[in-house]
Design a binder for these strands. Sequence first.
DNA 1: ATTATATATGACACAGTGTCATTTGTCAAC
DNA 2: GTTGACAAATGACACTGTGTCATATATAAT
Lengths: 203, 203
Amino acid sequence: MPTKTFLNLPKDKKNKVLKAAYKEFARVPLEKVSIKNIVENAGIARGSFYQYFEDKEDLFDYIMKIKIGNIEKKLNEMIEKENGNIINVCIDIYDFLIKIGKRRKNDKFFKQIYGNVKTSDNLMFTKKEEMSDNILQMLYNLYDKNKDILNINSEDEFKLVLEMLFTISRRRVVASLNYKDSDKAREDFLKEMEYIKYGIAKK
Amino acid sequence: MPTKTFLNLPKDKKNKVLKAAYKEFARVPLEKVSIKNIVENAGIARGSFYQYFEDKEDLFDYIMKIKIGNIEKKLNEMIEKENGNIINVCIDIYDFLIKIGKRRKNDKFFKQIYGNVKTSDNLMFTKKEEMSDNILQMLYNLYDKNKDILNINSEDEFKLVLEMLFTISRRRVVASLNYKDSDKAREDFLKEMEYIKYGIAKK
DNA sequence: ATTATATATGACACAGTGTCATTTGTCAAC
DNA sequence: GTTGACAAATGACACTGTGTCATATATAAT
């Protein structure tokens, strides 16, 4: 978390820093992000940065927390709207992410963030600590709504299904952000969702 | 590719360098790999490294090419053995990777390599250039053997299925390498394969 | 023995990180 | 309006690491 010092900063200055950071995070993957670039773009002294944040991960987590906060609200609405149907929720999330990810302001940032999620990060339930409690709670609630329509016999199996769905969906979001033809991209995604739903084996 | 200079080196010296590199690649993800550590461990001068390789990616690609060469042979055998059945091939690959990945000599290296594959790397067919021609050819040949048993109407749909299968499988390999209980890990993987095969929706 | 060619080396210029002693700003109390 | 105390800002510094290049050394060829 940022220090009190940063949180107390006048809005303008805070925004200047966050904007410079956003730009840098959009430029290269996190590991190549240069604090030097951020402080230069923000017009603050190098020392100030370390007065505000522990390191670049600290700043990154803060920015992501803000972004995810917005998405969580949306997610609740979607679950409501789809009455818990998890596949439809995935499709709604996909559409939502593509919509905001295609905005000129966001496109590079989105590609960096989503494209650079690692395989080991896709194992949500194996490392719960990293999930927001809200989202975790939300997902557990979903179990009840899905246990009768899905082929699942336990919460553990539901977790497997969720992880698969999210992994596949995330992959498709990245692909779509890179495609020229977004209709074709969406079609591919929907096909994959059908495969997940009904299986790839011929009856 | 390494330079002629490196390739012409006496076997011992070459091995010394490759061994030091392997150790460093097993320590941290590629972006954090330090050439300094490699040259120090290998006992060569910093300048020599740059006489042999363009940069650390060059060295990394070379090592991976060697490793993948071995796996390609195996893959051919598996396809033969399973008569092309793609899901069974996935299970065979899983078992093979876990077997060699659990060897003390390999475990850290494997975790680094597999765990750090990025979402954007999972879109094989969107960036063909990065695939070995051999593997690509192999996969195209598989289409014929699977088109009657899978729910696919075109090579494009087959590609979707393959990408999904590989993404899911790779995730499970990473998970398994981190699990204590490898029977449970394998069970989870098999369950996911069943889901992919017959779908998650209740009939 | 001499020359040409291949290989090896580490000092150097650069780029970036995180720290810390010092400076600057703010504001309440007198 | 001066003082003192606390908060915030600063950039020089010591580090760690990169990639290059002129020079030194080894090997081979004539």
